[in-house]
Amino acid sequence: MDVTAARTRAIRWPVIRPWLGVAARLGLAAVWLIAGATKVGDLAASGRAVNAYQVMPYELAAAIGAALPFVELALGALLLLGLATRLTAGVSAALLVVFVTGIASAWARGLAIDCGCFGSGGQLAAGQSPSYLPEILRDLGFLALAGFLLVWPRTPVSVDGWLAGDAHVEDDDE
């Protein structure tokens, strides 16, 4: 019984893994596409959200705030296509680490801001309390998706797989 269970598990993992990979890839793609789309309509506001963290001069914050939504949309599109998955997962993970660090530092410094992760952002109105912990936990969840793709970048229905010519070849050195 135990042996059978172990064997089915051993068989299952290679079967399930590619599809978990697709789910992680599309999930992370959706995160970036939504995050970018909610910010892209008001680039000045996106710059203000970055500036609210008070970690860099205003001009730099405004420029980064303007560039960020487009980078997020591009990351989302690349993940959706499954092109250079390991690289985009790595960039995603790096960005998420920066975001988590930023939120944690805002928390530590006692700033009362909205993280500005999906639009809005900036200082909170009086009486509103920040929700740093849920924001950080959410970003760590996204980080787990990126981590999965970093380790196992090859997923079905991806441009990477199509370029390799054979989606069934399990070479993980992409």
Binding site: L43, G47, A66, A67, P69, A77, L78, L83
Partner: peptide, 21 residues
Amino acid sequence: TSVGAVAVLVIAGLIGWSVWA
């Protein structure tokens, strides 16, 4: 593919910056 992806990301950032400017 990595070079292409990096180029896409950099160009996206520059587009954002120039739209804002």
